[in-house]
C-alpha cells in the first residue's frame, strides 16, 4: 500500500483536487455548453429543446450583447490601465524612505480586502446625487453636482473609479515588492553614465519590472473582466443598459428573462473570451521570460 502510494505520489496528491475541480467546474461548464444548443425557460413541463446554433446566431445579432461586450472591454481596459499607471507611480513613491511604511502598506490593503457588496453600498452613498459627499465636494469648489451612477454618461466612469480605488493598491504593492527585489548595480552604472531619473526609470526599472507587471496585470484583467458584485450592488446594469457588462447581461438573461439557452450561449462566449485573453497574456509572459 505505502509503496504503491509512493510510486504514484504525483497522482495520489493531485487527484483529489483534480476530481474536485472536474466535478465542480468541468461538469457545470459541460452542462452549460449542452444547454447553449437548447431552448429552455426553466420549465418543469417543457424540457430543453434542441435548436442547434440558433442561440449563438441570435446572440451575435443582439445589440445588447454587442453593447455588453463593448462595455466589458471598456471597463477592463480603462480600469486596468489606470490602475497600472497609478499603481506603478504609487509604488515608486512608497519605495523611498517613508516613515511608517509598514503601516502605510497595511492600510493600503483595506480597499481590496473589504467585502465588495459593502464597498458597493459605501459608494452608492458617496455618489448619491442629493446627499453624497461627491456632490457636496463638487459644490463646495463651485462645480455643478453630477448624477454619477444614475447618469447614462457617467455611470461607467463612476464604476471604473470604484474599481480603481479598490485595486490600485494591489498593483502598487505587487510592483513595490518587485522594486525591492531589483538589483542595484544597473542603477549605479547608469548614474556613472549620467542618466537622469526618468531615463533610468524607462531604461532600467520598467524592463526589469516587466515580469512582475505582466503577472499583476494578468491577475487584475481576469478579475476585471469578471466584475460582478460591485456592478450588481450599485447599478444592476443601469441606468437602462448603460452599465450592463456581459456578466450582468448573462445574469439578466438567465435569471430575469429565463432564456437559459441564450444565457448559456452567452456564458460560453464569455468563457472563451476570458480564457483566450488569459492564455494570450500567459504566452506573452512566457516570452518575457517568466514561468507560470
Amino acid at each position: 500500500m505505502t509503496n504503491w502510494i509512493d510510486r504514484n505520489i504525483k497522482w495520489v496528491f493531485t487527484m483529489p483536487a483534480v476530481i474536485f475541480v472536474a466535478l465542480m467546474m468541468v461538469a457545470p461548464v459541460g452542462y452549460t455548453f449542452w444547454l447553449s444548443f437548447h431552448e429552455w425557460s426553466m420549465s418543469n413541463i417543457t424540457p430543453p429543446l434542441w435548436v442547434a446554433f440558433q442561440n449563438y446566431l441570435e446572440l451575435f445579432q443582439d445589440e445588447l450583447f454587442i453593447k455588453s461586450l463593448k462595455l466589458m472591454f471598456y471597463f477592463t481596459i480603462v480600469a486596468v490601465t489606470v490602475e497600472t499607471v497609478l499603481g506603478v507611480g504609487l509604488a515608486i513613491l512608497m519605495n523611498q524612505n517613508i516613515v511608517g511604511k509598514g503601516l502605510v502598506k497595511t492600510l493600503f490593503l483595506l480597499p481590496m480586502v473589504a467585502t465588495p457588496v459593502a464597498v458597493g453600498l459605501i459608494w452608492v452613498l458617496i455618489y448619491e446625487p442629493n446627499i453624497g459627499i461627491a456632490n457636496v465636494f463638487l459644490e463646495k469648489i463651485g462645480l455643478p453636482g453630477q448624477e454619477w451612477l444614475t447618469s447614462q454618461n457617467l455611470v461607467m466612469p463612476s464604476l471604473i473609479f470604484i474599481d480603481v480605488w479598490e485595486w490600485t493598491p494591489m498593483i502598487a504593492l505587487i510592483v513595490l515588492a518587485g522594486l525591492v527585489s531589483l538589483p542595484k548595480d544597473p542603477y549605479e552604472a547608469a548614474m556613472i553614465d549620467g542618466a537622469n531619473t526618468w531615463q533610468s526609470f524607462t531604461k532600467i526599472t520598467l524592463p526589469l519590472l516587466k515580469p512582475t507587471l505582466y503577472s499583476a496585470v494578468l491577475l487584475r484583467m481576469i478579475d476585471a473582466l469578471k466584475t460582478f458584485d460591485i456592478i450588481y450592488a450599485t447599478t444592476q446594469g443601469g441606468p437602462g443598459t448603460s452599465s450592463q457588462t456581459i456578466n450582468i447581461y448573462g445574469y439578466v438573461l438567465g435569471f430575469q428573462y429565463f432564456k437559459i439557452g441564450q444565457a448559456s450561449a452567452l456564458l460560453m462566449v464569455f468563457f472563451i473570451i476570458v480564457l483566450s485573453i488569459s492564455i494570450f497574456t500567459i504566452l506573452l509572459r512566457k516570452r518575457a521570460g517568466v514561468n507560470l
Partner: peptide, 22 residues
C-alpha cells in the same frame, strides 16, 4: 505538472456565473 497547474488556473478564470444553474 504544468498541465495541472493550468487546469487549476482555469478554475480561477471561469466566470462564476456559469456554475449557478447547474
Amino acid at each position: 505538472q504544468e498541465g495541472l497547474g493550468l487546469l487549476i488556473l482555469v478554475a480561477r478564470i471561469v466566470p462564476g456565473i456559469s456554475f449557478l444553474i447547474p
